[in-house]
Simulated scan of single mutants.
Amino acid sequence: MRWAIIGLAAVLTAGASHAADDSLTARGNEPSWRLDVSAAGIDFEAPGLGLTFKAPVAARDVQDGRPRFIAEAGGERLEATVIEQPCADTMTGMPFPTGVEVSYAGRTFQGCGGEIMSAIEGGWRVIRLGGSLVPEGVMVTIEFGKEGRVSGRSGCNRFSGGYTLTGEGLSFGPLRVTRMACPEPQMETEQRFLDLIQKVSRATPGENRQLRLMAGDEQAMVLDRAD
C-alpha cells in the first residue's frame, strides 16, 4: 500500500502551545497508518494493528531542532515529529517536503509530510541530463508554476506548457518552444533536454535537496534549486 501525504500547513515554532493553527495529515505503510492533526485535536489509527488514538488537544514544541506534536489521552501518549528534509514515497519515490515519525504504543511509524506540490514548486536549474553534466555556460531551467504550468530555458530557446503531478507520477506536455538558433553545444543540449523531458514519468528527492526526474527506472535529469 502506497503512502500518500495530504497536508502540512504552518511553520512550527518553539515553545509548547495549542496547535489550533497547524494541521498535519500523513499516511504510512508496513503497517498501514494514518495521522490527522487539526484544530479539533489529533487522530491516529493503524487498522491492521487494531490501534486507535484520539485527543481533543495537540500541543507542540521543538526537540533536538525538530518540530513535534504531542497529545495525551486515556493514559496514553502520542508524539509526531516533523523531520524537515525531503521525503520519498516508498513505492513511487515521489517527493514530499518533510518526513513524519509517529511514536505510539511502543512503536515507531515512519512516513512523509506536506503537499507534494510544495516539494517541486518554483525554479530549478538542470545540472545533469542523463548521467552527464550540463555543459558549462549552457543554461537549462525548469519553473514549476501553479495550475499545472511549466516554463524555462531549454539550452538555447525558452519553452512553456503543461505538466501533470500526482502522488503516482509526473509528466510533461504538450510543450511549446521558441525557434531561435544558437551555437553548439547549446543546440545539442537543448535537443537532449527536450527528448528527455518527454520521457519523464516521476520525480524523487536527490542528494542535498536536489530533485531527480526519472524516466521509468532511469535518471533523466538532476535539478538543483535556482538561486
Results as ranks from 00 to 15, higher is better:
Ile5Tyr: 09
Ile6Thr: 10
Gly7Gln: 08
Gly7Pro: 06
Leu8Lys: 04
Ala9Pro: 14
Leu12Tyr: 01
Gly15Glu: 10
His18Asp: 11
Leu24Tyr: 08
Ala26Tyr: 05
Glu30Ile: 04
Arg34Ser: 04
Asp36Val: 04
Asp36Trp: 00
Ser38Val: 10
Ala40Gly: 04
Asp43Val: 14
Leu49Cys: 02
Thr52Met: 09
Phe53Gln: 13
Ala55Glu: 00
Pro67Tyr: 12
Arg68Ile: 10
Phe69Met: 07
Phe69Glu: 04
Glu72Gly: 10
Glu72Pro: 12
Arg77Cys: 08
Ala80Lys: 03
Ala80Met: 06
Gln85Met: 13
Pro95Thr: 00
Ser103Thr: 04
Arg107Glu: 00
Gly114His: 01
Gly114Arg: 03
Glu115Met: 11
Ile116Pro: 14
Ile120His: 08
Gly123Ile: 13
Gly123Met: 15
Trp124Ile: 02
Arg125Ala: 00
Val126Phe: 12
Ile127Val: 14
Val134Cys: 14
Gly137Met: 03
Met139Thr: 15
Gly145Val: 10
Gly145Tyr: 10
Lys146Val: 11
Arg149Ala: 05
Val150Cys: 08
Ser151Ile: 03
Gly152Leu: 00
Arg153Pro: 11
Ser154Trp: 02
Ser154Gly: 08
Gly162Met: 11
Glu188Gly: 02
Arg192Gly: 07
Arg192Tyr: 06
Leu194Lys: 03
Leu194Asn: 10
Leu196Asn: 00
Ile197His: 01
Val200Leu: 09
Ala203His: 11
Pro205His: 01
Gly206Lys: 10
Leu213His: 09
Met214Asn: 07
Met214Cys: 08
Ala220Pro: 04
Ala220Cys: 05
Leu223Cys: 01
Leu223Ser: 01
